[in-house]
Amino acid sequence: MSTAAIGHYTSTGQDTRKIAFWTFIGSECMLFGTLIATYLSYEGKSVVGPTPQEILNIPLTSVSTFVLLMSSLAMVLALAAVMRGDTRYSKVWLATTAVLGAVFLVFQAFEFTQFVDEGLKISTNLFGSTFFVLTGCHGLHVLVGVIWLATLLIMSARGKLGPEKAMNVEIAGLYWHFVDVVWIVIFTVVYLIQRGPAA
C-alpha cells in the first residue's frame, strides 16, 4: 500500500485535525463554563465595592463587542477567499480579522486600567477577582488568536496559503468563532444582566 493511501484514509472522511480541534473546543467550554459559573455564584456577594453597577461601562464595551463580532464576519470572508485561491482578499480579510481582534484587546486594556484607577483590583473584592480572571482568560484567548491570524497572514503574504491549506484557516476560524461566542456569553452575563447585592 502506498504512502499516500495510508496518509489519506480516515474512518470518517473528516480531517483528523478538525476532529481533534472540536474536542479541544469541548474542553474549552468546560474551562469557560467553570469560570462563568464561579462569576455567577459570587455575583453580588462582595462585601466591599466597587460593584459592577458602579463601574461597568456598557456603552464602551458594546462597541468592543461589536468590533469582535465583525471580526468573525471577516474570518468567514478570509476562509472563503483562501478556499477559492484569492490571495489578495485572503490577505485583506485575514488582516482585518487580526486587526479587529487587536482593537478588542486595546479596548480591554483600556477598560482594565480604567478599573484599576477607579479602585477595582483583583484583590479588592470578589467581583474584582472573578471579573479579572474571567475576562482576562478570554483576553488571553483573543491574544493567542491574533498571533495565530498574524501567522496565517504572513504565510499568505509569502504565497504559502493556497486552497490546499484551507483547513489551516478553517481550524483557526473554528477557534476564532468559539472565542467570539464565548464573549457573547460573557458580555451578556457580566455586563447586560447585572444582579445587585443580595438583600
Binding site: M30, L31, T34, K45, S46, I122, N125, L126, S129, V133
Partner: peptide, 26 residues
C-alpha cells in the same frame, strides 16, 4: 479544565491576593 480553573483560582489567591477562597471577602 474544571480542576485547572480551580487551581488557577488558588494560584491567583496565593500570588496576587485574589479572594476566591477567602471567607473574609465573602
Amino acid at each position: 479544565p474544571v480542576i485547572t480553573v480551580a487551581l488557577v483560582f488558588l494560584m491567583f489567591d496565593r500570588m496576587f491576593g485574589a479572594n476566591f477562597y477567602n471567607p473574609n471577602a465573602g
